[in-house]
Design a protein around this nucleic acid. Structure first.
Lengths: 116, 116
DNA sequence: AGTTGACCCCTAGCGTCACAAGGTATAGCG
DNA sequence: CGCTATACCTTGTGACGCTAGGGGTCAACT
């Protein structure tokens, strides 16, 4: 994470980010990192030591399913959402929204700008 | 935390919540818990084992200052913001907003409702 | 008088998780 | 041959929210 975003704020929200990325179609770990960087214009730039264990954890939890392939002589492990993963993505999105609104209410920042 | 808000999502954001509460004037630990519960209609209901260590941590970090008093025969430790605490509150609020917008961009939820 | 519940403080230890730091291997370019 | 980009992995550490206890005061009810 760069740009004044300190490290640990991610805690507990990483799963949603990963599920949201994979929701758009199967992705391998390295590509997930790039996609996160792309969508956030560099604001979220996670090290491999963060995302690989996280993907394994999500697979162990039954939310992701992986399959190996070979592209240009390089091994790739691609992840896709399981049925439970799709459900979890919806649920975690809901939780995130509730959480964000709640925090907003407490810290009492100015009205939230509507997304473009 | 109740209402579908799982525990660990707080990670890294608790400091901001506490600073935001104390920003409105000196508060003691127990009162902070109640105020959080009040402002969020019960959505954020933290155990004492969470907030007392957190307040100590913030005091050690120089963001809060505490003083003991006695009310109705009960000891109270009241916390107030230091200069650094005020600065940190502003900074963390900024970080939170940036973080929330960034996550929002990734998970691609519908446009954020403007706060009432 | 005893018990319950609200108020008010504290700590030790646990589990989780993001991260740093290291490792492996291939492909392509200078 | 080194260097960079791609692509995967693991071990260890630190941070921190929470569980589960420990204090103690006071009012109200039994």
């Amino acid at each position: 994470m760069v740009d004044g975003m300190k490290a640990d704020i991610l805690k507990g929200h990483l799963d949603l980010l990963l599920l949201a990325i994979v929701e758009g179609g199967p992705q391998h770990g390295y590509a997930v990192i790039e996609e996160l960087r792309r969508r956030t214009e560099g604001a979220i730039d996670l090290p491999e030591g963060t995302i690989y264990p996280a993907l394994h954890r999500l697979e162990r939890a039954g939310l992701l399913r992986s399959s190996w392939s070979e592209v240009n002589g390089r091994r790739r492990r691609s992840y896709s959402l399981t049925t439970g993963g799709k459900k979890a993505a919806r649920e975690k999105r809901r939780e995130w929204t509730a959480f964000a609104l709640t925090v907003q209410r407490v810290v009492g920042a100015p009205a939230w700008p509507t997304m473009a």
